[in-house]
């Protein structure tokens, strides 16, 4: 690990001030990606700004038809929250399946969403549930947030403060997990709200994406059989030692069917 300065601000304003004008400074949420990156010397930073002491970024609120989760809320809190289990059970179940207990104690929703790892779980929930990403500057709709491989709409000096999920009629997330890391080889989040169905796929391509053929078929009939013959085009999918692009394309449909069957 290269050397760096370490800061622990107690407010978002203070964190943003620390970031200003430093091109090689980064904020750290749970550090579950940043610490390994630093250990491998894949990044050389002048300053690490640890958000752990900022109380305003923590906590879960269920108000009306929305669940709002503070950016620094760890996965295990979402997984074990009775309020989340009641409002959006699929979201609590997704959080319970991220990594392992150790990672769930440290990893946060803000870090996971800002990092936009192509195999992350939370990104699929944000996109399928049509969540709003709240930052210190603005609110960003899920459809405009994820831009590409590890790339988001976040600008310089912009921090996620919370993610707000609308309560939907039915939802479920199913993933085919890497048995060692529990990252999604393919994960599919399906959400139904009135006549509208949104489906987000993670793990398959360079960035989480919505799957139009599945959404169209499920809008007509919200049943696993409705998508049994949908063909998924996998030509741009990831292909690696874990799964070929063709296999991932197959898994998208299978995971989507399982998610529809499990949706509650």
């Amino acid at each position: 690990m290269h050397d760096f300065r370490y800061h622990r601000p107690s407010s978002v304003d203070e964190a943003v001030k620390l970031l200003a004008g430093k091109s090689d400074a980064r904020v750290m949420a749970g550090g579950m990606t940043l610490i390994p990156t630093l250990k491998q010397r894949l990044a050389k930073l002048t300053d690490v700004i640890d958000l752990a002491a900022i109380k305003e970024l923590k906590g879960i609120k269920v108000e009306g038809k929305a669940v709002t989760i503070g950016a620094m809320t760890p996965h295990h809190e979402v997984a074990s929250s009775i309020a989340v289990k009641k409002a959006i059970p699929a979201l609590a179940a997704l959080a319970a399946g991220i990594g392992d207990p150790h990672v769930r104690h440290r990893g946060t929703i803000g870090g996971a969403v800002a990092n936009n790892d192509p195999t992350a779980d939370y990104t699929a929930a944000v996109l399928a549930l049509n969540a709003t990403v709240k930052t210190n500057k603005r609110s960003i709709a899920a459809d405009s947030f994820f831009k590409g491989l590890f790339e988001t709409a976040l600008g310089e000096g912009e921090l996620i403060t919370a993610v707000s999920f609308p309560v939907v009629d039915k939802a479920a997330y199913m993933k085919f997990a890497n048995p060692a890391s529990r990252y999604a080889i393919v994960g599919v989040f399906v959400a139904k709200s009135g006549a509208s169905v949104r489906t987000a796929v993670t793990g398959a391509a360079s960035c989480v994406f919505r799957c139009a053929p599945i959404e169209t078929a499920l809008a007509k009939s919200f049943a696993p059989e409705a998508i049994a013959s949908v063909m998924i085009d996998g030509k741009d999918f990831n292909s690696d030692i874990h799964a070929s692009a063709e296999y991932r394309a197959h898994l998208v449909r299978v995971m989507a069917q399982r998610a529809v069957a499990a949706a509650a």
Binding site: M32, H102, V103, S181
Partner: peptide
């Protein structure tokens, strides 16, 4: 590497891999 869990300790009563934090 954060993969094996042999370095697990508890921080404020919660299990963490002690190689995954400073």
């Amino acid at each position: 590497e954060g993969r094996c869990g042999a370095c697990t300790v508890q921080v404020n009563g919660e299990a963490v891999k002690s190689c995954m934090l400073l």
